[in-house]
Computed example of a mutant assay.
Amino acid sequence: MQQRPYTAVFFDAATRPDLADSLFRLRYALFVQELGWSLPADSGRERDQFDTGDAVYCGLFHDGQMVGCFRAIGCERPYLAQTLFSHMATRRPYPAGADHVEISRFGVLAAHRQASTALYSLLMRFAKARNAVALVALAELPHERLLNRIGLPTLRYGDAQVVGFRDDGARILAVAGEIPILREPSPAFRALLSLTQFMEISDEASLFGCERLSA
């Protein structure tokens, strides 16, 4: 039997509260249950003070189930890394303009780890649609290494630091930094975009204007 393709939706909580609820449940399953992060949760949902009307979400779906996600917030507004981890920007300050966008709560369920590159592709499509100069993030070290391995450059704002502990007591090492979005797309950028060239993508957050997203 042929495997059903992945699909994606860009949305905000005001227009799609049903998808927002699914996303908060996914974040609990992924970050709290699978990865063991110590995050506040309520009734099987993980959400924080940055889940406001300013946030745009991406949900990655398979067979009608959301299996991956990320959150995007313009850096002209309060955002997670700058607000809660200001001490990590020791080399250069966090940006504070709309041309930079923070990406947080990025991840895919372990059973769908093969779709991680598709989520990176969606991330690059988002950056392109927003005309972002850079995507800001607080990233664990393996995540930073993966970005470099698939050809996406990263720029650190400071050295790696311990940002928390997992349920088993293991330290969580992370670094604050950004993915610069080059004016002339690199071969790696174009290759990532090609991964979702024919993916069915619903733009319920009105990000892409007249750009045709779905095959």
Rank of each mutant, 00 (worst) to 15 (best):
R145I: 07
I172D: 03
V9H: 01
D99F: 11
S22L: 10
V108Q: 04
T15W: 07
L207Y: 05
Q65E: 15
G169L: 05
Y6P: 00
T83Q: 04
M1L: 15
L173W: 11
F126L: 10
A118Y: 04
P17V: 00
S86M: 10
G68R: 00
Y28M: 03
H87G: 12
T154H: 09
G53Q: 14
F24K: 08
R212F: 13
T117Y: 05
Q197I: 09
G68K: 06
G107F: 00
L84V: 06
S186G: 07
R212M: 13
I201N: 02
A89I: 09
C69I: 11
L35A: 06
L138S: 05
S38V: 05
Y6R: 02
A55P: 06
A134L: 06
R113G: 07
R105D: 01
S214L: 10
F126W: 02
A191G: 14
G164H: 10
A72T: 03
R71L: 05
D21C: 12
G44Y: 13
M199P: 04
H143K: 07
T90I: 03
L80Y: 02
L123I: 12
R130E: 03
V162N: 02
R166W: 07
G177N: 08
L213N: 03
L213T: 03
L109P: 01
T52V: 04
S186Y: 04
A81C: 07
F165P: 02
Q65T: 11
S186W: 09
T52P: 04
A81E: 02
A20C: 09
A98N: 13
E76R: 11
L182H: 13
D99C: 12
F31T: 02
G177T: 02
L35M: 15
R47C: 12
A170V: 06
L147D: 02
C210N: 15
K128H: 10
D48N: 04
G107K: 01
F165S: 13
S194R: 15
L195G: 03
N131H: 14
Q3K: 14
V56Q: 05
